[in-house]
Design a protein around this nucleic acid. Sequence first.
DNA 1: TAGTTTTGTTCAAACGTTTAAACAAATATA
DNA 2: TATATTTGTTTAAACGTTTGAACAAAACTA
Lengths: 342, 342
Amino acid sequence: MGKKKVTIKDIANELGITPSAVSKALNNHPRMSIETKNAVLKVAKRLNYQPNLLASALRKGKSNLVGIIVPRAHSNFFSSVVENIEETLNGKGYNVVITQSNESYRKECKNIDALLHIQVDGIIASLANETVDLKYFNKIISNGVPLVMFDRSEDVLKADYIGINDYGSSKLVVDHLVEQGCKRIAHIAGFANTRIYKNRIEGYKDALAENGLPLDADLLVESKLTIKDGRDIMEHFLAMPERPDAVYAAGDYAALGALQTLIEHGIPVPKEMALVGFSNEPFTSLVAPSITTIDQHSAQIGKLAAESFLKKVEGTSEDLDKIILEPELLIRASSMKSKALA
Amino acid sequence: MGKKKVTIKDIANELGITPSAVSKALNNHPRMSIETKNAVLKVAKRLNYQPNLLASALRKGKSNLVGIIVPRAHSNFFSSVVENIEETLNGKGYNVVITQSNESYRKECKNIDALLHIQVDGIIASLANETVDLKYFNKIISNGVPLVMFDRSEDVLKADYIGINDYGSSKLVVDHLVEQGCKRIAHIAGFANTRIYKNRIEGYKDALAENGLPLDADLLVESKLTIKDGRDIMEHFLAMPERPDAVYAAGDYAALGALQTLIEHGIPVPKEMALVGFSNEPFTSLVAPSITTIDQHSAQIGKLAAESFLKKVEGTSEDLDKIILEPELLIRASSMKSKALA
DNA sequence: TAGTTTTGTTCAAACGTTTAAACAAATATA
DNA sequence: TATATTTGTTTAAACGTTTGAACAAAACTA
């Protein structure tokens, strides 16, 4: 049961050398002879030696733990990002502590404190919807802990950033809908105080203008992008004397809600109303009709975020990364009015 | 930038006492005078002292980290369990390291090694689908690390267990379908080598017998319960000369695939074919028709799992917990043939 | 061959905390 | 008043590793 842990001291005794020699051998110190190194490695393996990371962390002032803060772990986008961060960092000897803010500012602050408390070597995070005050994130930075943001962040934050071109996404969507013959394109937006949603709104407005379409303020509604928001806002659109002929939602859940309402009203999609979502949640390809959406390259975002962290912690690079990936429009049934594309 | 960390030594110097006095004051040692305790607390607050958990962990041989292994973080069931474990344990001063096996045995083993390596104080896990060899889980136990399993586990494992009554779930489902007038009830099952799926199969068989229905071996198909499995197996059922009039899938994703196929074939649900899933994934209430399913009390499972761990680590209880919750049948449109229930 | 450099190892302190044992002072017991 | 107990604190070692400095031996240099 309570088997005594094997330490470098045990290895040292076994070989008649000192613990520090063992430590240096294990860490491949240039001054140690190759014979000692091999002997140590052999005994270590035989005794099934497991280094005590706590001790090493304490001495080196480095925990080899990286904290992650995501708004929700069960969103496909975030879980995929996390999975790839994990993958990349595990390969480099780091372990990952995942926390969720549940979109709550309070929880986010608590998470930050908890991560700083356990002395993570860095934090990779995406902002909660609620968050406007960045003082806790600045606290991370002022504590000297490397911070990498992804997807949701703010420009004022002096941190690495990995995200997609949200402005460009909206252009892709609107151009596609115009191409399908839509003339009155509505936007179920996120709240404009979040940078990414603001950018999507700007992209939407500019794309309308570029396509010679008027901007109708009634067709632009901000919300939390939940399913219920999608339903309510769609009901609101349907009650209009002059309905939109396309709806672009800044989130897939809102798009799903909108779709349900359309189906309940017996409105043919995309014939009478085309629909586009955002994020490529798995259900978008599963519902009928399948929902056109934007893919955000979650896997790549995860990898790049991890790599940005590694660059900082290994001191390869001092200056801040700012990586913007180009989004991909996945055209599916909900917006495919011309069959030509099929 | 690199602000020097405040240690108990600093507090000690400030007050002209020794570090050990400070430590004892902070840990509320009975022998320390109330005056010293207050003085220490005051200075600690003023200097913004943050205890070094690594040092404390090293000395106490306790990391205050708990490892979690889930098959997939983005399943609603698992993410909800995890959220509640986190909540419960954070309140007790523990932090949580979440890892995913992605249903892979290899990844699961790697995760176990990683968690043992960082010296977690305990592990809370649910088996990957692939896993049949439990040697890595036994390794956890033989390392003296408390292990709590939930949902998916095996009886031979000497660990705490929290789950639902899978056998009883099937009975609930079959009884309900019989009540709705179904006579040929098929089961899209999980692989019987996993205990929970075997139990669901047994419950299905026994419930048929109890209701005086024959067991048709063709109507019982094992699979990985993916969307594609659901589609393929439903196609197979539809091709039968004597089709089933109800399908009970042991997972919601398989149920969703089955539903899509039914809709594509224009078969009215539940009129010609009733459908029941398992797990209460959010989409089951969102699709049309909404899918009847089993709720597994994920929040409670998470809480109970955390509490089982705490009991072990605090030494309150030596013997193993085995907690089986009763499932809840959520009756929705996909199985509601009699409108009486509405 | 005396002096310098290199090589392989040991020494000792450090990381920040906890804790059993020791101790002096204050308080209680007889 | 002498002795035992309690109280509040200090001393010192420990947790397991890392690392700069020290050192002796071996290998070069001139």
